[in-house]
Structure formats: C-alpha cells, structure tokens
Design a protein around this nucleic acid. Structure first.
Length: 136
DNA sequence: GCCAACGTTGGC
DNA sequence: GCCAACGTTGGC
C-alpha cells in the first residue's frame, strides 16, 4: 500500500471531473521521473489530487484501480497511464500555503520539487494532509 | 559527452 | 504576466 500525490490544473482535469466520470486514465505524463512513479503504483494505493497553478490546493483522494498500462494518448511505448477512481473529497481543501507552513511537511516533493507532477508521499505526510482537511 | 538553446511548468 | 527552475533536444 503506497501513498501518492498527483497534480492537475483544474481547467484541464479536476476532482469534479473525476467524480463526474467515475474513473479516469491518469495519462499524458511526459516526464521520466513522474512516469517511474506511475509505474510503481499498485491497485488499491491512494493518491491525493492537487490542483496546481490557479488553486494550489489538495482537493480530494483518488484510488488507484489498476497497475500501469500503455498511455492511450500516444503510441510511444515509453509513456504509461494508470486508472484512478474518486475515493473521497476532502471536507476542506488544504492549500499549498498551509502545507508550506507545516513543519512536518516541509520536505515533501510538492514543496522541494515543485515541478514533479506524480510523487510518492510517506504515509505520515499523507495522513497529516488528510488530518489538516478535517480540522476547523 | 558537453552544453547552449529552447520549451514547459508552476509559484508568485 | 513574469520568470526561475528544470527537462529535453540537438549541434559540435
């Protein structure tokens, strides 16, 4: 069981869209490090969904429902996708600002490696962000 | 194999 | 809208 965080621009694909569609191919990743993280995902893993650029907040949790397969948006076999389904919308979004202000989270890739779009999270960091979404 | 040029991402 | 950081490409 692994924990992840994936980034998306709300205008391109949002947590709302994921709920509306019931599932999605998490595809279009064109970065090797992010691709390697997709390849490490397993059925049943959980991933936070983060809206980058305009919103800059974690909005929900998706469940990984497949291991990786060929990215359906390209014939290039270097790139892969995984299937995700909506798992749980956060009661309250957790902003990048809040995350940066939290000492336990200052070393997560979202902060340290801001351009990486698919990143692993320690269970402790995942749980901390979920806990923050449930506070006042 | 190096590195300059270029394109993209994403925070501010 | 700007630009820093970073990844990729291609000439040499």
């Amino acid at each position: 069981m692994n924990y992840w965080l994936v980034k998306t621009e709300k205008s391109a694909f949002s947590y709302d869209d994921l709920e509306k569609n019931g599932r999605t191919d998490w595809d279009g990743v064109r970065n090797y490090q992010a691709r390697n993280n997709l390849k490490a995902m397993e059925t049943g893993d959980l991933s936070l969904i983060y809206h980058s650029v305009n919103d800059r907040e974690v909005v929900g949790i998706a469940k990984i429902t497949s291991s990786f397969y060929q990215d359906p948006t390209t014939d290039d076999d270097r790139w892969v996708a995984v299937e995700m389904k909506p798992h749980q919308r956060l009661k309250k979004c957790v902003s990048l600002k809040e995350i940066k202000a939290t000492p336990e989270l200052e070393n997560i890739a979202l902060v340290k490696h801001s351009r990486l779009s698919v990143m692993p999270l320690e269970k402790e960091a995942f749980d901390k962000i979920v806990a923050m979404s449930e506070e006042g």
